[in-house]
Every structure is written in C-alpha cells, then in structure tokens.
C-alpha cells in the first residue's frame, strides 16, 4: 500500500442559506447550490507532508472535513489507507486526527481535563495520556504550570498548542492540520512548525496541511496542491510549481510607496504578476533591459523612492498569481 489518501472526483456543495423558500417550491434549476469542492482528485503518499494552499473560502476546510469523515461528499470517493471513508468511517477514525483553525474546547475546563476527555474518547488510559500530553506540550514550549488552568484564560497561541496536543495524543498515522498556525504569533508559529517537522522525522506519520501561508507550506510540505474556487488548479513540489513561472524573471524592489509603484509598473505591457507586500513590490518580466532602464527611470521621474531592485526566485504567491490572475491576499 503506497498511498495514505486517495481522492477521486470529490465534490461537495451547499444550498444557499439566504434562500428561504421551501425546497419543494423551488425548481431544480433555481436551487442555489454553492460548490465548496468540485471534482477534486489527488493522492497523498504514505509519510508525505502534503500541503493544500489557497485563499480563505477556497474549499480547503471542506476538503479536510470530508477526509476526516465529518462531512459526507455529494460525489466522489475518499480512501484512507485503502479504507473507504463512506463505507467504513469508524475504521478510519481510529487512524486519523485533526487540528482545526478554531481551537474548540470546553473553555471552562482545564487543558488537562480537555486532553483527558479527548484521549479517553480514543480509549487511552489516563496515565498513558498524561505522559504523552506532558511530552507534547513540553515540545511545543507550553508552560507546564498552566496545564491545570482553565482554557478560557489562555491566549490564542496557547489554546492552539493544546489543540495540537489533542491531535497528536492519539498517535494518529494520518494527521489533518487545517490552518494550524493561523493567528499565532511568530514564536508560537515557529514552535508549532518545528514540532510538526520533528515529529514527522521520528514517526511513521502522514500529514496534510491546509494553509493560506505560502511560506509555511513551502517550508513544511513535500508536495503542494494549490486550490481555488473549490478546485485544485496546480499540484507538485514547490520547485515544480515555481517552474511554471520560471519562463519569466521575477524581480523585487523596496519602495516608499508601493501603491504608486504598482500603478507605474502596470503601465508596462511586458510586466506581469505585480504583488505588493510590506513595502516591497514584486513583478515578472521577460525583458531584462526594461528593468534596468525604463522601469528605474520611470520610478525616478515620478519621485518614487526605491532601493534593492533585484532578481529573486519566484514564490508560491507568484505561482498562484500566474495561474489565477489574483494574489492570495486579494481573496476574501
């Protein structure tokens, strides 16, 4: 058995909640069905770290919910370690766990009480569970003294660390991480990322991570699927995906006015995929002389201060922009 997950033509749609008419009164052609995931197919190899990259609302969480048996697909199939998720969800539940973006807990209970509840659900004895979660929390740099404190007193980062402990305490062989670091401070984010990589190195573990953080996906994942509007629009290793935009050169410059710089660059027909981020402007062009001469001249003429104009390796953001015509951050 080579694959941990096999997904074939997976589709899930939801009816428009704003339509208050009873379903029997509405003809089929007028039933507003929004497809969160449409005809998605891919495989995840055993021990692979597989990333699903896409903007908010692109269908990542719906996809993860279907793999974790929390949502029934309208069409298609999900197989986890050769077990059909629709026919034998109970068998799959023993092998997997999930960490979601919302660290949902019984907020009045302590971290320990929540973790014991979660481990008992999987039939794990308390003394075994305590040993396990103490080690996981230590690896995540979670202060040991806080384990008996109520969850409602924790910061978002601390809650998410307990959530990650809950996911790993059951020793899953497939873990589904649905935006595990969203909203975390940089230190907590690093703690979580390092924990995931260390654990993956030590254990027979397959990981699926959904995220809209391209740097995180690039850092952690062996292969990446880029998702937009419920569909997978590209898939491959980070290098394979970047090769898709390698036909042009990517440049970056630091500027005092990124909006004005962007507007100036948009006037050049040979310039594509302009992204602004934190005082930097990124763009692609085939024409190297254009960069050297015309662009620098134009920016100077318009009194836009800039520095460090340099050629850079394209990022996954450039790939996303190339394929969809929009930036990850432009999305809802």
């Amino acid at each position: 058995m080579k694959y941990a997950i096999k997904i074939n033509n997976l589709t899930k749609g939801f009816h428009d909640k704003t339509n208050f008419m009873p379903k029997w009164l509405v003809s089929d052609s007028h039933k507003n069905k929004f497809y969160a995931v449409k005809d998605v197919s891919f495989d995840v190899k055993k021990r692979e770290i597989f990333g699903v990259l896409g903007p908010n609302g692109c269908g990542k969480s719906t996809l993860i919910r279907m793999i974790s048996t929390l949502l029934t697909p309208d069409k298609g199939s999900v197989e986890v370690f050769n077990i059909d998720a629709l026919k034998k969800p109970g068998e799959i539940k023993k092998l997997i766990n999930r960490v979601s973006v919302e660290a949902s807990f019984f907020k009045r209970l302590s971290a320990k009480e929540n973790l014991l509840y979660a481990s008992r659900l999987y039939g794990i004895e308390d003394k075994v569970a305590i040993k396990k979660f103490q080690q996981i929390l230590k690896d995540l740099n979670f202060p040991e003294s806080m384990v008996n404190s109520q969850m409602m007193k924790f910061s978002r980062g601390m809650q998410q660390k307990v959530s990650i402990a809950r996911g790993f305490i059951t020793d899953p062989i497939l873990i589904l991480l649905d935006e595990p670091t969203t909203g975390l401070d940089p230190k907590s984010k690093l703690d979580v990322q390092n924990f995931i990589l260390n654990l993956h190195a030590k254990k027979n573990l397959t990981i699926v991570i959904s995220s809209h953080d391209m740097l995180e996906v690039e850092k952690l994942c062996d292969r990446i699927a880029i998702m937009d509007k419920g569909k997978i629009i590209a898939m491959g290793t980070s290098d394979e995906l970047k090769e898709m935009v390698m036909k042009e050169n990517t440049y970056e410059l630091e500027t005092s006015d990124s909006a004005k710089s962007k507007r100036s660059l948009q006037k050049f027909k040979q310039v594509h995929n302009i992204i602004t981020h934190n005082g930097t402007v990124r763009f692609c062009t085939k024409d190297i002389t254009l960069v050297a001469d015309k662009i620098t001249t134009t920016l100077k003429e318009k009194n836009i201060k800039f520095k460090n104009l340099k050629q850079v390796v394209p990022s996954l953001e450039d790939v996303f922009l190339e394929i969809t015509g929009k930036s990850l951050e432009d999305r809802p």
Binding site: T69, L70, G90, K94, R98, A118, R166
Partner: peptide, 17 residues
C-alpha cells in the same frame, strides 16, 4: 453544550459509538 463550545466535531471524529 458541545455546540456552543464547538467541540462536537472532535467528539464525532473520535472512534466512539
């Protein structure tokens, strides 16, 4: 209660009848 706390997905994901 589980609805309020949002924990129901975790309970339903566990291999418990």
């Amino acid at each position: 209660w589980e609805r309020w706390e949002g924990t129901i997905e975790y309970t339903f994901m566990a291999p418990v009848s």
